[in-house]
């Protein structure tokens, strides 16, 4: 069905590292949100970043994608990512679907999605005809009747789907999804996870930040646990739950 093996089937290190994070630290003023996080996500992985609220899960994604300044090294498919350059990350295959979706409320759903193409083109026509935009639209048949509607008037679940579709329009090799089910009804959350699973099946590497590990682990074959801003990979080299920062 796809070139990606079922979760956990292959030994780590057999595939190319899609994302390699070494010694990542993120601070907001004097507050240290992430301290010295180190982990690797292999190509084709579905990796869950789990841990309690306020422990720096989202900050890891923000730092990795360049939304906030960081210390430490981030490599995307072997190339060192420049600090604070979201566009570079998106062009090189890493796109963020942020927490709380961060849509453009007065723009139509279709315009929201097509702006995902902005990282690789300036031409509206080319964006509309692109395979990645088509795929993003096709993945969510339930959005079809609402594409002309202002994104701010959509339901929470529909907005989440628009946010994921916008991420897909950038044609990512790694899709980093931050709390995809925040505030969604169970049945909608399940639909979101079904979509994420099919994105993964089509060969996209996934990183999912989830407060509730149970749901994430139905999809993911790897898990990075975050406590007090420090990562801990079960089965990895970092000791479990090191003391606070």
């Amino acid at each position: 069905m796809s070139e990606v093996a079922s979760p956990g089937a292959r030994p780590p290190g057999a595939r190319q590292a899609a994302l390699k994070v070494t010694g990542l630290s993120v601070s907001y003023g004097n507050v240290v949100a992430v301290h010295d996080a180190t982990f690797t996500v292999a190509q084709g992985d579905a990796c869950a970043i789990t841990g309690p609220n306020g422990n720096g899960k989202s900050s890891i994604l923000m730092g990795v994608t360049g939304m906030v300044r960081r210390r430490g090294a981030v490599e995307i498919f072997g190339t060192k990512a420049p600090n604070g350059d979201v566009r570079w990350a998106a062009r090189n295959g890493l796109t963020l679907v942020p927490e709380r979706r961060q849509l453009y409320p007065e723009l139509s759903a279709a315009d929201n999605i097509i702006l995902g193409c902005y990282c690789w083109t300036r031409s509206l026509g080319r964006a509309r005809r692109s395979a990645s935009f088509g795929r993003a639209i096709d993945l969510f048949p339930e959005l079809k009747p609402h594409l002309k509607q202002a994104a701010g008037t959509l339901s929470g679940g529909q907005q989440q789907m628009v946010a994921i579709a916008r991420g897909l329009a950038s044609d990512p090799k790694i899709l980093a999804v931050d709390e995809p089910c925040l505030g969604l009804a169970e049945v909608v959350a399940r639909r979101v996870y079904d979509v994420l699973a099919s994105i993964h099946e089509q060969g996209t590497t996934l990183i999912v930040v989830e407060e509730a590990p149970k749901r994430a682990l139905t999809l993911c074959n790897r898990r990075v646990e975050v406590r007090n801003g420090v990562t801990d990979t079960p089965g990895g080299t970092t000791p479990p739950y090191p003391p606070g920062i």
């Binding site: 939304m67 979201v86 062009r91 453009y104 702006l115 902005y118």
Partner: peptide, 12 residues
């Protein structure tokens, strides 16, 4: 509309 959302899409 949303400066953070714009940056996520790579918009300067």
């Amino acid at each position: 509309e949303n400066a953070i959302g714009a940056r996520i899409a790579g918009i300067d």
